[in-house]
């Protein structure tokens, strides 16, 4: 076991996959000479050369679409989009092309590509650079959308994404790149796409999150344990396909749920989870499902405003405690 950062887990996995398979090539802005805006591709240009680590012009629609075309020919391109905000420039190629080509042509050609891109607010980057718009992609059949919250998952999911024959979006998170976690030495595990995980067991309440919110959720659960509150944490891990069963099984056990999401509440991922819970665990619910989500504003730059708008350990704790009071469970 070694303790490494989320960033290093991604980098090591990219490197190992490139060594394993010549068809894997990287495309993206500033991934070569600059070694990546967030240094995920550090050292890779040196090791693999320009053919396999291809710096692109600022041309998201062009190079994402080119990756789709290259994938149609059997290469396994891994595209880095500097942040998820810029994916909007490429959205036609992602939604109208990458996600459609396998089905629209009757299953003749798959599109084995990966788009890696970080989302996340909290870096004082202002409204256009702080969005969590994973929902747009999670909405679309044909895409697979993953959102790891730990270094081990980042590695195992990236490995799965590269080896999968469908277009996969791997959503990274600016707030998680420096986070650390245990990864088994010589780890070769390939995550199963479409599976959530109960990352902490508990009996009083279910706390559901993904990406940064799953990580924060685990911290909250740890703190609340000191107050004798037993929180079960479900990390969604895969936003499409969505593992509703794991969520519902947990809620059937605990009888109540809080969803923590870094996106906007209205129509957000949490709305889908809440709807699934009422469909799958209606008779087991002792309180309304609560959602903790971003305030519905374009995220401001000034720190106090930004902090106030984003979900946090505090806001999740509040929602958990209020939900437990509502069901008449003792709150520490």
């Amino acid at each position: 076991m070694s303790v490494i950062t989320y960033r290093q887990a991604l980098r090591d996995t990219l490197r190992a996959e490139m060594l394993r398979d010549d068809n894997v090539l990287l495309l993206g802005e500033e991934i070569g000479l600059f070694e990546g805006s967030y240094k995920i591709t550090e050292g890779l240009l040196n090791e693999f050369g320009e053919k396999r680590v291809r710096d692109t012009p600022i041309s998201e629609e062009g190079f994402v679409g080119a990756a789709v075309g290259a994938a149609m020919m059997g290469l396994r391109p891994v595209v880095e989009l500097m942040t998820i905000n810029f994916s909007l420039i490429a959205i036609d190629q992602i939604i109208n092309h990458a996600a459609k080509i396998y089905g629209m042509f009757g299953g003749q050609t798959s599109v084995p590509m990966v788009i890696r891109t970080p989302g996340g607010g909290g870096q004082q980057l202002g409204a256009t650079h702080s969005q969590n718009i994973e929902l747009f992609y999670a909405f679309v059949p044909g895409l697979k959308v993953l959102a790891p919250s730990t270094p081990a998952d980042a590695a195992a999911m990236l490995r799965a994404a590269i080896r999968d024959d469908d277009p996969v979006m791997l959503l990274e998170n600016l707030g998680l790149y420096n986070s650390k976690g245990e990864v088994p030495d010589g780890d070769e595990s390939v995550a199963e796409i479409g599976r959530a995980a109960v990352t902490r067991e508990g009996g009083d309440i279910t706390l559901i999150g993904y990406s940064r919110m799953a990580a924060v959720g685990r911290q909250v659960a740890e703190q609340l344990a000191e107050e004798d509150i037993s929180v079960e944490v479900v990390d969604l891990r895969s936003l499409r396909p969505l593992d509703r069963q794991t969520v519902v099984d947990s809620v059937r056990k605990t009888g109540c749920a809080v969803i923590a999401e870094d996106d906007w509440l209205t129509y957000g991922i949490g709305a889908e989870i809440a709807a699934s819970i009422q469909e799958g665990a209606f008779d087991y619910l002792d309180a309304p499902v609560r959602r903790v989500a971003m305030a519905e504003v374009p995220l401001p730059y000034a720190k106090p405003l930004e902090n106030a708008a984003l979900p946090s350990a505090e806001s999740i704790t509040t929602a958990v405690k209020e939900t437990l009071s509502a069901v008449g469970k003792r709150v520490g």
Partner: peptide, 8 residues
Amino acid sequence: TYATPVAN
């Protein structure tokens, strides 16, 4: 929908 079968 998918070339590689997937859970859920």
